[in-house]
């Protein structure tokens, strides 16, 4: 079987990590791997969850036709649903969703994320990003959120982000009294990371073929990792088959 693409690996890792208590799971724009993870979880481990994919709210546990993973989030085919996802109303229920997924330009040692861009220091922009979408609100309120980083190098994994779109730093979150549970995991092409007891990111697992030295070299802050650090369990054949044949039927994640 064709090995997992980067986005297929991300989808499977995210689906595996969802918690039993996650009841409503929402995915934002430009995160097809998280859409696939959510659909996959709803059809397997989380049959009772409500998933907010694109324009619709779905519950696929009793075998309803999955909404598909299309290139764009707001595809009209996602309107076939239990309810409609209205941007004007989604923020009215701060207890929902339980889970959200975010991407960013930079993540730092404390788990803070930047999607604004890189300022030039004179009130302008050296590199302007897309904007922060709903990262601040979702990361403040959700029971838990995941960061997906499509690249892992010293420019994307930095000691301190240039600007904060989503506050990951748990001690700051505690001080400000955020209702949400905070950052769960960061997944990257090199491994899986999570905040440790002191709030600094730590290695959870290293992906197949990634050495501790290569990881440290690609990371702009000290990331303690022992030579016998656990390896990311690779996607099983069953997971990949299910993902490809039941969830990502259009091959959006195949690359």
């Amino acid at each position: 079987m064709r090995p997992a693409s980067r986005n297929e690996l991300f989808a499977i890792l995210l689906a595996r990590d969802l918690r039993p208590e996650d009841r409503s799971i929402m995915v934002g724009a430009n995160m097809p791997m998280a859409r696939a993870a959510t659909v996959m979880a709803n059809m397997t481990t989380h049959p009772d969850a409500r998933i907010l994919i694109g324009l619709g709210v779905h519950a696929l546990g009793d075998g309803r036709r999955p909404p598909g993973v299309h290139p764009f989030l707001f595809d009209p085919r996602t309107l076939e649903a239990d309810a409609l996802m209205s941007q004007a109303r989604i923020f009215d229920d701060a207890d929902s969703p339980d889970v959200f997924f975010v991407g960013g330009l930079q993540v730092d040692q404390r788990g803070n994320l930047n999607l604004f861009g890189i300022p030039d220091g004179n009130g302008g922009w050296k590199m302007r990003g897309p904007g922060s979408v709903a990262l601040a609100t979702m990361s403040t309120n959700c029971r838990g959120y995941y960061i997906v980083m499509p690249s892992h190098d010293p420019r994307t994994f930095v000691e301190r982000v240039s600007l904060i779109s989503a506050l990951g730093d748990q001690s700051e979150r505690d001080r400000l009294g955020f209702p949400g549970g905070g950052l769960r995991l960061v997944v990257s092409p090199l491994g899986v990371f999570a905040p440790g007891a002191d709030g600094n990111l730590e290695v959870v697992t290293l992906h197949e073929g990634v050495t501790p030295e290569a990881l440290q070299e690609a990371t702009g802050f000290p990331l303690p990792v022992s030579p016998d650090a656990p390896r990311t369990p690779p996607p099983t054949e069953a997971e990949l088959l299910f993902l490809r044949e039941r969830v990502d039927v259009h091959g959006t994640l195949a690359e």
Binding site: A29, N30, P71, P130, G131, S132, A134
Partner: peptide, 22 residues
């Protein structure tokens, strides 16, 4: 004024927007 300008997977940031802002 807003929270995002882009074309999802086709352009992480709106191309003309990015240049004009920079």
């Amino acid at each position: 004024v807003g929270s995002y300008v882009g074309v999802e997977g086709l352009a992480a940031v709106g191309p003309v927007f990015r240049r004009a802002v920079q």
